[in-house]
Write a protein that binds this DNA or RNA. Structure first.
Length: 274
DNA sequence: ATGATTTCCTGTAGGC
DNA sequence: TGCCTACAGGAAATCA
């Protein structure tokens, strides 16, 4: 499932291919989920030049020269791939952008269709999607700022971190990995953390995300780099997907239970409740 | 306000 | 091999 490190990898991967290029061709599928509508998005993209590509939380934002922004959220199974125009499309391609001066096409695949595409001004995108309610960017915030964003809430750690409203970009994998590394039980209330625990959590969030980006993200199931390569951070997962195995820190068995509606992996010994 | 539950979807894995 | 069911989950909507 694409989270902050995966989106960051996608942004870095497609930016050199599309920045400064004009969109000369748009293809879309009937089931493409787009705001305000697939037809409006396709029409609005044609002829526009992409001036920059950046990331906010798990949203990819391609800024155009006409004041509008193409926003892509990969949802669960979305992929953005650069492929040659002549290369046959695989199943579930929802959008393809062809550019001037290159044979490479930007293709959006999304089998499970939890992804989203939108074209509008920043203000429009913020009102149409969760983009407007995003919390701070963990990688451009200090540990103190991250700690402050988490500290006041009465919510459970797992719930708050999945919500995107306090801190943006973490999903199920990185929340579990971060909480394990900080030695915190996912059901702990945010406002119950000591100063040291908050500080440790904030530092681990940054550390995990930075390392994951360095390793090209986690490929679990669908996620691929825009060039088709897989990430390798899954090899560095300490708890995610390792239920039943031995904790890398102690002798205990890692467990998985449903918390905040998500499969949650942790060590009952290293991450004590209360 | 919070939290639990449901919805959207398809591919994959498991049982038989 | 094939059929069936359960499960995975990001974000938004719904309900208690």
């Amino acid at each position: 499932m694409p989270e902050l490190p995966e989106i960051e990898t996608v942004v870095r991967g497609i930016c050199p291919h599309v920045q400064g290029r004009t969109i000369i061709r748009v293809r879309r599928s009937k089931v493409c989920r787009a705001l305000p509508s697939a037809a409006r998005v396709a029409g609005g993209l044609k002829g526009a030049l992409i001036s920059n590509v950046r990331r906010r939380g798990k949203y990819l934002l391609a800024e155009l020269d006409n004041q509008k922004i193409l926003m892509v959220h990969l949802g669960m199974s979305g992929q953005l791939l650069m492929e040659e125009t002549g290369e046959p499309r695989r199943k579930h391609m929802h959008l393809a952008l062809g550019f001037s001066k290159t044979k490479m096409e930007l293709r959006f695949y999304d089998p499970r269709r939890f992804g989203k595409v939108a074209l509008g001004t920043l203000a429009e995108l913020e009102s149409w999607t969760g983009l407007g309610a995003l919390g701070i960017e963990p990688l451009s915030s200090s540990p103190r700022q991250i700690a402050a964003a988490i500290a006041g809430s009465s919510k459970r750690l797992k719930t708050l971190l999945l919500e995107q409203r306090a801190v943006a970009g973490l999903g199920n994998i990185y929340v579990d990995e971060t909480l394990f590394r900080a030695g915190l039980h996912p059901l702990r209330r945010c406002n119950s953390l000591t100063k040291d625990e908050l500080s440790s959590l904030a530092r681990e969030i940054k550390k995990v995300l930075r390392q994951a980006i360095k390793e090209g993200g986690s490929t679990i199931g669908d996620y691929l780099h825009p060039d088709g390569q897989i990430g390798s951070f899954q090899d560095s997962h300490l708890v995610y997907g390792r239920a039943g195995q031995t904790c890398p820190r102690c002798a205990a068995q890692l467990i998985k239970e449903s918390i905040a509606g998500r499969g949650t992996h942790f060590c009952p010994v290293c991450q004590p409740e209360l």
